[in-house]
Design a protein around this nucleic acid. Structure first.
Lengths: 216, 216
DNA sequence: CTGCATGTTGAACGAACTGCAAAAAAATAC
DNA sequence: GTATTTTTTTGCAGTTCGTTCAACATGCAG
């Protein structure tokens, strides 16, 4: 049984609130007082549960990745439609997350990349690790596409992965800037056309795009 | 003649140093003591010359735009080669700036967009104004391209401008993440292939790319 | 009930923060 | 030389920062 005084707020709930605050306001822009307010935990409780501010930020970032990034990347790995459709779903899920009104706009990880230049050594390592996980997930899906014959065996995988990785960041930045959802979906569609698929007509034609297609 | 005690450091030089500090560390991550140290001006001098911290940040951001953004956008407006070549130069100039080792990595404006969500009202207005200037410059060059027959009259200008605007942000984020210069140039080349030009062969063929082209 | 383990609370610490006022320094004007 | 003007320097209010300690509250075990 649980000994001692019971917790007022669940640790996971507190971490969720902390994550939102860091996501919204950045590391230096969020004080421990702010975190105590939004989480409902007193400051000594935060220190006891998570450690100091840096450790708390790292745990919030990892919680973000598990809660939001994890499902999206798992979906990409398990995806079995055409590679273009799968990346459309993938980037679309990122867009939905970016624009979700229940959470701050943009992507916490992208914000952290901007932040991390002046963070601690450990902070940078965590951010770089997540960034590499993101890249690796994209890369693996592309390798499967080559194996499935959806892309040529001559395809430069790293080039395509870097391009998609960049679209990921762009989506987060456009979302942070307040772009509309249709415009963001159109942005994704435009980017997908730069990918070297073997049968472009099959995956691009017949789409119900709100704007004319670019390729002519 | 100049009366009174002469300034130890020129105001523009101080603003340049301040800009670099904000660019590197963000608004909340940079203290007035830091700014006093890097600029060589004592704190009362900073307040006398620029106002409070928020005003100083705005002046630093505008200085950034005049010093770095201005020339790049002026070059885009004055550009007279094919639209694809002009945007290759434009995005390439952004990439060079992003990777320049004499200044912090990334783009100060992009960093400020991440920062500005929790900034003052005025702060947000300044950032949005610069973002709209950026978009407008891209848009104007596309309109000229349609007039010159390089793009179809049916082209969705806003769609193409949003796409290029997103590539701009992506370049800044990839640069902040530490991408190599060849990879960043390849990223640009990949994105350009999503643009709907009338004579793709003329502008894409014969290029000395380090990787195979994507379109097949 | 009495221990004990855990959580919460209020207070407080030293340090760093923004912003400013008064004094000292360095130049010109007379 | 002295007076004046402008900037630097020094130091300091008042607040907030991250962090911790001692006291109090609330549960189970015996």
């Amino acid at each position: 049984m649980a000994r001692g005084r019971p917790r007022k707020v669940d640790t996971k709930d507190a971490l969720q609130s902390v994550m939102v605050a860091f996501w919204q306001n950045g590391y230096a822009g969020t004080s421990m007082n702010d975190l105590s307010d939004v989480s409902g935990m007193a400051k000594p409780g935060l220190y006891a549960a998570f450690g100091d501010k840096e450790a708390l930020f790292e745990k919030a970032l990892l919680h973000y990745f598990e809660t939001y990034g994890g499902p999206v990347f798992a979906q990409l790995q398990a995806a079995g439609k055409h590679v273009i459709e799968d990346f459309r779903d993938f980037l679309g899920a990122i867009a939905d997350l970016t624009l979700d009104r229940n959470t701050p706009s943009g992507c916490f990880l992208v914000n952290a990349i901007v932040d991390c230049t002046y963070g601690s050594e450990r902070h940078q390592e965590v951010v770089n690790g997540l960034r590499e996980s993101r890249f690796a997930a994209i890369r693996e899906r592309l390798i499967k596409a080559v194996a499935a014959g959806e892309m040529s065996v001559d395809t430069d995988i790293d080039r395509a992965a870097t391009f998609l990785d960049g679209q990921f960041s762009a989506i987060a930045m456009l979302g942070r800037s307040g772009i509309s959802e249709p415009d963001l979906k159109t942005f994704i569609e435009t980017g997908l056309r730069a990918l070297p698929v073997s049968e472009p007509d099959r995956v691009f034609d017949g789409l119900d795009l709100s704007t004319p297609t670019l390729r002519q």
